[in-house]
Design a protein around this nucleic acid. Sequence first.
DNA 1: ATCCGGTTAT
DNA 2: ATAACCGGAT
Length: 341
Amino acid sequence: MRESKVIAPDLLDWYDRHARTLPWRVPPGGPPADPYRVWLSEVMLQQTTVAAVKAYFLRFTTLWPTVQALAGADDAAVMAEWAGLGYYARARNLLACARAVTAMGGFPDTRAGLQALPGIGAYTSAAIAAIAFDRAETVVDGNVERVVSRLFAVQTPLPRAKPELVTLAETLTPQARPGDYAQAMMDLGATICTPRSPACVICPLQAVCDARAQGIAAELPRKTPKPAKPLRQGSVWLARQGGALLLEHRPPQGLLGGVLAFPSAGWDGRDLPPPGPAAWCDLGAVRHVFTHFTLDLTVLLGDLTGNPTRGELTPLRQIDREALPGLMRKVWDMAQPALRG
DNA sequence: ATCCGGTTAT
DNA sequence: ATAACCGGAT
């Protein structure tokens, strides 16, 4: 059992003096912000920095001041305004969510109700419930994970530590001012308890921070090193004869087992020669990321001058792109200009 | 060149 | 359980 901590009073005092002023924020201590603006900003903030979001938020709220207005917008207009922000599934979910909310007469005011909406997951539902509806939900984003892992000097590496960090974070959430508290945690993570060099000397929580006491704040949270993906290289042959290309079924076991593919070699443990005699023309390389490695495959096109040694000649028009694995689709796509010209 | 980060689909 | 989705920061 870990020692419990009380941080909300000190953190809220700090927030009252140092809260960032942001277009979607209201000042600390006052009534909560408009749920529409909280939702819109939180969705934009998913995987995206505050600096990048500001201009988009202003533009969206000018164009569409309410969720009803946004619900009535053309899909294409919203996609166009979102352009440049990235992760475009967010924009599609944004519209679906705006329409659902409009149909139900307004935003749900509970975390569960919010999380049932498109594009709203564990983080965003808690953030809206806390910030817009003053509910004592615990908001855990990357900032909070970092702050909590340091406060309690959690040595378990992420992502395995996630459930432990959520549990610890829940013990810290106050009943009073949960919205300001949530924003304070994120501001602390963004401005003081930063990933690289945390400013512990000016941190309002330095006195209760275990990592600070142990001098390991900058080393936390630990992360399981992503298995370094080695780069492998190989060749794939587009062996042409008349209007047909050589295709083969890969060996039933192992990588891409049993799927249709253009003959290839050099990257999957097999080191085979070209599937027939031809003068090969280098079309360039396709890159494909597998679970354990990144593959650069050199695409070679040639007209067979003799019998193929493996595979089956398949008429071009009979080749179904959708029947190929992703890697081979990339190869197919790259070859299109050459196969026409 | 590498790190960072929520949600959804698979 | 994990990969796909993108752009910005370091």
